[in-house]
Design a protein around this nucleic acid. Structure first.
Lengths: 237, 237
DNA sequence: CGTTTTAATATGTATATACATGAAAAGCGG
DNA sequence: CCGCTTTTCATGTATATACATATTAAAACG
């Protein structure tokens, strides 16, 4: 464990402020020269730190204008599934969305297992079930839980008009996500919703999102195995 | 399209040499000071370029020893499936491997479709079928094609003793890969090999690897859906 | 001759300085 | 008040310099 270097400590410090929300997205942070003075380092060192945070995507820098905190963006191929609408439209197909059910309840054992809260405190969840359609055909079934302690405004949002995934992207910044990808047989309910025969192999992507260490939402996306595939490419550079 | 900066052009130049094999893995490249002189830049600038290539994983630098070209490493969560042995051992289970079949042939239509060669020239392939075992139980079925034009030494390698994935990792440097993840029903053959009932959902990961734009190998890994899952986490930083 | 100490050396980090670049703001003629 | 030029200013890049650090090779020593 080598001693962290000077600009590394600055990077960590500033990143903390952004992740903890002290510097919200869009906030204009002090000038490079002022920050250098505040930290007691040269401008070159501060420039290196700010440059790294820019490469990491946390900051957006422009000459004369200054440095602002960047708005969070999704990164990986798996993450991009967050926005199913864009995915379908990217394939040149027509996107449709239907809310199947909505219910409000105190989190039960299954809900807690999915969201994995840090403590034992009770909390309420909003449970949604929805269908994403491509060219009118069922494309993906979504089962979602939203932690109402983390996102209270979800209780009054209209999820019949807007998919929860897209709505949450605008509400919760810099979330960390965890994915589990499996192959599962279609249950009776799922088969009915997706127009499949029960037992048909489906690709299931379960995503648990947290913000500042606290669970925000859990989404289980199920795709008919013969109609969907996940593509990811990797190249050096 | 901003003008590339000085050290950016150096980074691109040196990375090219590594990717094209002019500087093979393990090669000790000239000292920072000498390279700086050769490129006509200051040591600081060359240091920045070499530092970036190090962060990208192309170089390995150590004080006094000098700078050497790094041996390629797999990166992403999906890529890590390359080495199934390590994956199983990482789970604390016993790893076993069995070669089921081996055949040599001129690439047919199916082989060409999987490998997608750049031109129409005929070539030979080595086709392998193998089983990976965890604690003695079937864990994953592997169907693999190796382009013998790209890796001629594969013809004489003993794939009964060593899995092709691990062997190839040592032979082919800096490959780019493409993955397709699907859910498929187990075919009769597959079901027999994996001890499943035909039709059972399986997670299929197809990986096509290329080096310098030419296909090297194609691997189709099939996992029983109820025994395996792919986990990927994403966090800011 | 083996062990310890010392010097040499390549990379790692931080600083001061200089100039380039791009965009906003100020100035200015009409 | 409009449209143009000039200035100003924050960031972007490159350099010389200095010292730190890790590791090897040589030197000193018992």
């Amino acid at each position: 464990m080598a001693e962290p270097t000077l600009h590394d400590r600055i990077v960590t410090d500033l990143r903390e402020r952004i992740l903890r929300g002290a510097w919200p997205a869009g906030h204009r942070i002090p000038f490079e020269t002022d920050l250098a003075e505040a930290f007691g380092v040269s401008r070159m060192t501060m420039n290196k730190a700010l440059g790294q945070l820019t490469r990491e995507g946390f900051l957006d820098r422009r000459r004369k204008l200054g440095t602002v905190v960047a708005t969070p963006r999704m990164q990986s191929a798996v993450m991009e599934i967050a926005n199913i609408g864009e995915e379908i439209r990217g394939l040149g197909q027509d996107y449709g969305y239907r809310l199947l059910s909505r219910s409000l309840r105190v989190a039960g054992p299954d809900d807690r297992k999915a969201l994995r809260p840090a403590d034992e405190a009770p909390f309420r969840v909003l449970a949604l079930e929805a269908l994403h359609l491509a060219d009118g055909l069922p494309f993906c079934h979504e089962a979602r839980l939203i932690h109402l302690g983390a996102v209270p405004q979800a209780e009054t949002a209209d999820f019949a008009a807007q998919p929860a995934g897209a709505w949450l992207l605008q509400q919760v910044p810099w979330s960390a996500a965890e994915h589990v990808i499996r192959a599962v047989p279609a249950s009776a309910d799922l088969a009915a919703a997706l127009h499949l025969r029960p037992g048909t192999p489906c690709l299931e992507i379960a995503r648990r999102t947290e913000f500042e260490g606290r669970p925000v939402t859990f989404a289980r996306l199920t795709y008919p195995g013969d109609r969907h595939q996940l593509v990811a490419g990797f190249s050096p550079s």
